[in-house]
Structure formats: C-alpha cells, structure tokens
Design a binder for these strands. Structure first.
Lengths: 335, 335
DNA sequence: ATGAAAGCGCTAACAA
DNA sequence: TTGTTAGCGCTTTCAT
C-alpha cells in the first residue's frame, strides 16, 4: 500500500479529533460550517480518499461481487461479464472476476479467496472438471448469497440462471432435419453438467420427433476448437459420415468447418453445421456459421439481479429461483 | 457478508484468549501442542477462514493487483490477463480486473476504486479516449507502484511494457510492398497514444524506404470492426482504390476483408490485407488473415514482473524501465 | 459543536 | 505457556 492520507493526518494538521473530521466529511449536521469547510478543503488538497479496506471491516460488507467463470477468452463469458458489471455498477458494487481455467482445483481456490475477502455475493459458472460441489455447498452453508449460471449442476438448492439449452438444441437439430440432414452428429459437453445433459436431450428428442433413430456413434464428447480439429477429420472420412453437425459452442463448430474445408467438403451442400453461442466468430467464417444465440449479456444481468435480491433479503430464507433465458437460432450460410 | 467464524468464536468456545487462538493457528512455538490441536480441530469443524479484510487492514497490504484494460472482449487483452494472473499467482497475489470500456470516465473511476481498495500495484492499458493523464499521475504521486502497457502515453515517468509497434508496422507494410502492393492504406488508432503514433511511423518509413510517397488520403483513423465495415465499402469503390491494407487490429482487418468479399473483390489477388494481433479470428477467416503477433501473454507477464519489482523495492526511487516485446509477422493467405 | 472510546478481525509487542 | 493491549482506518454512541 502507498502513503495515502487518512483522517488522522487531517485531524492532526487541523488540531481537531478524528471524529470531527469523519463527521465533517460526511456532512454531519452537528459540525459547524467553518470546520466542515476547513476539513473538506484540506482533504481536497491532500487528496484524501477513504480507505475502503477499513470501511469494509467496519461495515462488514465489501460492496463487491465475486464472479467465477471458466475462461474470459470465451466470447460468451465476455458478454456475461458485461451484463454482471452493468447491474453491479447500477447498485454501486464492484466485481471481482476469477478464471478457473476449467480447473476444479483453481475454482475451489478462487471461491475460497472470494470468501476470505468477504465478497457480498458470488456468481459461478462451473468448470468442466467440477463434479464435487462441496465448495458450493460451503458458500450456501456460510449463507453467502450465490447464483449459479450457465454451467450448473442440478439438484443444488440455489438460484440458477441458465439458457434454454434443451429448446436451443432441439430447434437447431430440427432445423438441420428440415434442411435435409439424415445423419446428424452432436459434439457435446459431458453430461454431469446440465448444459451437456439438456442439449443432448434436445438433440435426441428432435431426432425422435422426426422419426430418426438415435445413433450413439454420432454422439461425440468434444467441446473445444483443438479437440474438434483433432477428431473431425477421421469422422468426415467415414463412409457413413454425418451430413449435419450440431456443436456445443461456436469454436467447436468452427473446428468442424475448418476441417471440412481442408478436406474440400462443401458446406452447406455436403454437410451442414450449427454452433451454439452466436459469437463474433460465427459471423466472420466462410460460410457464416448458423448458431444458437445464448444472450450472455442477459444471462449476466439476470443472474446479478437475482444475486442482489438475495443480498438484500438475507434474513428470510426463500426458495431458490430458476431463471431460464431464451435462445434464438441465428441463420447463416452453414445450413 | 455472511456469518463466518472468527477467532473470537473459537476462543470463546474453548475458553482461551483470542491471541492464543491466533498463535495456535499460525503454529507459534510458544503454544502447547494440546492447545494447538484443540484450536485447529475446532477451527476445522467450524470451517474457520481468516478474514482477509481484517488482515489487509492490519498489514497495510492487500496482496492484490489492479488491472485496468479497455475491453476484456479483445482477444489480445484476454491473453494479457492470463500472463498477469500467472505471474500474480506465482507471487501469491490476486488480480482485480477492471474494464474501462474505452471510456476515460470509467477508467478514472476504476483507478479510484483500486486506490480506495488499496491494491498493492496497478497495471493499466489506457482507453482510447484518455488524453488527460492526471489520474495516472495521482497514482505515481501516491507512490503506488504502476506499470503501463500496450496503450501508453509517452513522457510519463513510469515503467512501461509495449510491443515493438514501429517494427511490427514496418515489417507488415514492407511485406505488402514485397508482395507487389503499390497503394497501401493504413487503418490506425489516434496518434495521441504511442501505439497509433509508432505504427504510423513504421508505415510511413516502410513506404519511404521503398520509394513510395506517403499519400495522406490513404491514412484512415479507424480501429473497430463496425467502423471498418462502415468506411471500407466507399474506399473500395474508389477508382484509385488501395491494393493493400494494414490495420491496427485483427477485427478491423476482418471488417475490410468482409466488405471486400461482399463486393466480390478477390483477396489476395486484388487487394492484400494484414492485421495486428494474430488473434484466433485471424485463423478462421477465408482466406486466413496475415497478422502481426503481439504476444499478449508475454506482455502481461513482463508488465507484472516489472510491477513486482516496484512493489518489492518501494523504498528506493529508481528510474522507470521500458520493456519492448518483439512482434512477429504470421503469414496466411490474405497476402 | 466537539471529543473520547469502542469495535469491526486480526497480529504482535509486552506482561505475567 | 497464555493473556492483555494497542493499533490498522473508520464510524458511531455516549459524554461533555
């Protein structure tokens, strides 16, 4: 810490007590206007700013929210951050962002750091690795307000904000079928996160409703660009290769697209591809990537609103709320 | 804040003093092993975690760095963040990330918040709007260690880490010339930031060294995707349209590319394009975008190392250090 | 209208 | 081996 001015410094220079300075600065009615003026002027000259650390201790509140996300790099999470920050700033709160980098261990450390720093509430989107949720339960037990979003685990007694993953997936797969696809592959996330489970259900139900039997050999657990680049070539070389692909996020879809282009497979004529996210990237590939918009900004906003509701109502235990943000299929030329 | 356990709670339940608890928890040699055991066990059962806010006040140090960047969304800044976090975590520090959203006002507020929260050091990449740097001077006057990176203003007496913008630009423009371009446009940032100034110099010098006279009508102040999409069409429709484009960042370059493709202008046959950043996006367009790699991760790491040097050497005033991270032209099919 | 003192949670110098 | 106390910066109750 630097050499910052305190009310004690001001009090000494002015020959008054620290309580007078404190009151003068907060315009307490008891203080004479002369004293106020003197104090405020000196505070200004010295560049006094209240020590927030002291105030946090005093008030037992930090006016800070913790936000734990897997990776800032993801366009989706960047938009979530904006939503969170906007609502937080409206409420005069700061936001501390932590990246778990998809590591369970780091996620636990992040959350512990936030708890130690006594943030007033925590927003979490779980890492891919997270199966044990005792660290989340700890937050709940400590009665720290918490909201999970996007990457959640069901059956946890907390507020959650998710996308309508089921419907998003259903609509996307249905669109592929309408466009003529018969063999549709899905690149999805592990099913322990509800995001993986629900999208897979949407995929399966869309197939069933169109009288297409689910072919387990078309279900791939793959959700990164690099992995997609790794596994797609061999899939595209299969004699019974898929004619449609639905991927869990845009970069995974783009991995499929890049591989197909390298193999000179025509999109959308020979294969069609849909992503999930509707990131900037979806708009700059050739062809453009049809993608399910997740409205990350809205997710961030809703989650933060829910969190503030908890923060401001801590006394009475109320039932967990679940919010679901609608998705929207954005059509481009990959389908 | 929640209902978290304090050493006082432990002390009361155990009938000892809080100092005993404090010492027991930190394995002080004076404390008997029985007492230690009892204290530690109870602490464990109750889920005691030290209140970092109290420690911050006590130690006059928060073990936290502040990082102010224009926009998290930019791939470049995401990579910088990773570099910063890695070095910070190596030193047992946390990082608080603030977005200025390219707003001077927000930048000032961010920095004030960081100062009030008594972070131990601050890393800043200035917003586009920032011309007045009194808020930066305030940090310096307060003797808070600070390092500027990427978006800096010259002649400020602080440590800075930049890319070799001049050379990066020179190399890129030279490459366009080698590839046969005669009329090269630059889409650049305002010159009040050294990044704009230096890249423009590199551009001009590369032209001069190849006996091409600088044509002021080919210099455009444009550095976003949206603006690029707005201004490029009319530029491409000029009879004397440029045959080469060098843009200040990848998304601006991609704006040019998308516009050219919409106008059915062939890349690289009719026009060639180079970006600056070498983001993921550069690799997924068709054609791939030739781009100057900025090594954001390295920039983040270097800046943070410099910052720690300051933090750990606060007593003696030493001269500001300037670090320059090399760039590298990554060739793809847009040139 | 102002000062003294307690307290937020913790550590550490000093006492015992 | 353990307890008491002061202090980090601030607010606020209680005295004056």
């Amino acid at each position: 810490m630097g050499y910052q001015v305190t009310i004690k410094n001001i009090a000494e220079k002015l020959g008054v007590s620290i309580s007078t300075v404190s009151r003068a600065l907060s315009d307490h009615p008891d203080i004479s206007s002369k004293t106020k003026k003197a104090v405020k002027e000196l505070a200004d000259v010295l560049g006094y700013k209240p020590n927030q650390v002291a105030l946090n201790l005093k008030y037992q509140s930090t006016k800070t929210l913790g936000l734990v996300i897997p990776e800032i790099m993801h366009n989706y999470f960047s938009t979530v951050i904006s939503g969170v920050e906007d609502i937080a700033y409206d409420n005069d709160y700061s936001v501390v962002i932590c990246q778990s980098n998809e590591s369970y261990k780091r996620e636990v450390v992040n959350i512990q750091t936030l708890l130690s720093n006594r943030v007033d509430g925590i927003l979490v989107s779980l890492s891919k690795e997270t199966k044990d949720i005792s660290h989340i339960k700890k937050i709940i037990n400590n009665k720290i307000p918490i909201v999970l979003f996007d990457r959640i685990i069901d059956d946890l007694n907390v507020d959650v904000v998710t996308n309508d993953d089921y419907k998003g997936a259903y609509t996307a797969v249905n669109h592929l079928i309408v466009k003529g696809c018969k063999r549709i592959a899905i690149y999805t996330a592990s099913e322990h996160l509800s995001i993986g489970k629900n999208r897979l259900s949407g995929y399966k139900d869309a197939l069933c409703d169109n009288n297409i039997t689910v072919d387990e050999s078309l279900i791939f657990y793959c959700d990164t660009y690099l992995d997609s680049m790794k596994i797609t070539a061999s899939i595209l070389k299969r004699v019974d290769r898929p004619d449609g692909f639905f991927a869990v996020n845009d970069m995974t879809a783009i991995g499929i697209m890049m591989t197909a282009k390298a193999l000179e497979i025509k999109i959308p004529e020979e294969i069609k591809i849909i992503g999930f996210e509707n990131s900037i990237s979806a708009g700059i590939t050739s062809p453009g990537l049809t993608s399910v918009d997740q409205f990350g900004y809205e997710v961030g906003k809703e989650a933060t609103k829910l969190l503030f509701k908890r923060i401001k109502n801590k006394q009475n235990e109320f039932l967990p709320e679940k919010r679901c943000i609608k998705t929207k299929l954005v059509l481009r030329n990959s389908t």
